[in-house]
C-alpha cells in the first residue's frame, strides 16, 4: 500500500511538474518533449485507476500519433526556432491569466475535495455491493465485450467520425489547390 501510494505520488508529481514546466518554457521544442513526459506519466496514472487498456491506448495514440504530428506541424510552421532560445529559458508569467487559473484551480480542488468527502449515492452503492473494479479483474475482456454490445452504436459513430476527420485533415493540409 505504501509503495503503491509512493509510486502514485511520483507519477503525479512528474505529470503535474512537467506540465507546469511545459507552460513556463519559452522554447517550444522543449515544451513538446515535456508534453511527451506528461502523457507518459498520465498513462501510468491510468494504470493506477485500473484502466490498463486506456493507458496503452494513450501511449499508442498520443505518444505515437499526436505528438509526432505536433512536432511535424511545428517544424513546418516555424522559422524562428533558434532565436527563441537566447532570450532566456522561462518567459515571464502573464499575471491576469495566472490569477484566473489559480482561482479556477482552487475552486476545482475545493469542490473535488468536498465531493470526495461526501460521495454520491451510486458510488456508495457500488462500494457496498462490491461492484468496484479490482486489480485481479480482466478489464480488457470486459471492455471488449461492452464495446461490442452495449456501446456498439457510439463505437461505430466514432470510427466513421474519425475517418471523416482524418480525410478532411489530409485534404486541408494539402499543398496548392484552389485554397
Amino acid at each position: 500500500m505504501a509503495i503503491e501510494l509512493f509510486v502514485f505520488y511520483f507519477l503525479a508529481f512528474i505529470a503535474v511538474g512537467s506540465a507546469a514546466l511545459l507552460v513556463a518554457m519559452r522554447n517550444i521544442v522543449r515544451s513538446l518533449f515535456l508534453f511527451f513526459l506528461t502523457l507518459f506519466a498520465l498513462a501510468g496514472l491510468y494504470v493506477f485507476a485500473l484502466a490498463d487498456f486506456v493507458a496503452l491506448a494513450q501511449v499508442i495514440i498520443y505518444v505515437g500519433g499526436v505528438l509526432v504530428l505536433m512536432l511535424f506541424a511545428f517544424m513546418l510552421s516555424n522559422k524562428t526556432l533558434l532565436n527563441d532560445v537566447k532570450e532566456g529559458t522561462f518567459g515571464l508569467p502573464r499575471w491576469p491569466a495566472l490569477l484566473v487559473v489559480i482561482l479556477l484551480g482552487t475552486i476545482m480542488g475545493y469542490t473535488f475535495l468536498q465531493f470526495a468527502s461526501a460521495p454520491p449515492q451510486w458510488i456508495r452503492d457500488a462500494e457496498q455491493e462490491n461492484r468496484i473494479i479490482t486489480t485481479t479483474d480482466n478489464t480488457v475482456h470486459y471492455l471488449g465485450v461492452n464495446t461490442m454490445t452495449r456501446y456498439l452504436l457510439p463505437f461505430e459513430l466514432v470510427s466513421v467520425f474519425l475517418m471523416m476527420a482524418l480525410m478532411g485533415a489530409a485534404h486541408m493540409a494539402r499543398k496548392g489547390g484552389k485554397s
Partner: peptide, 8 residues
C-alpha cells in the same frame, strides 16, 4: 491531479 492539470 486532474484539477491541477486542467488549470495548467
Amino acid at each position: 491531479v486532474s484539477a491541477l492539470l486542467f488549470a495548467i
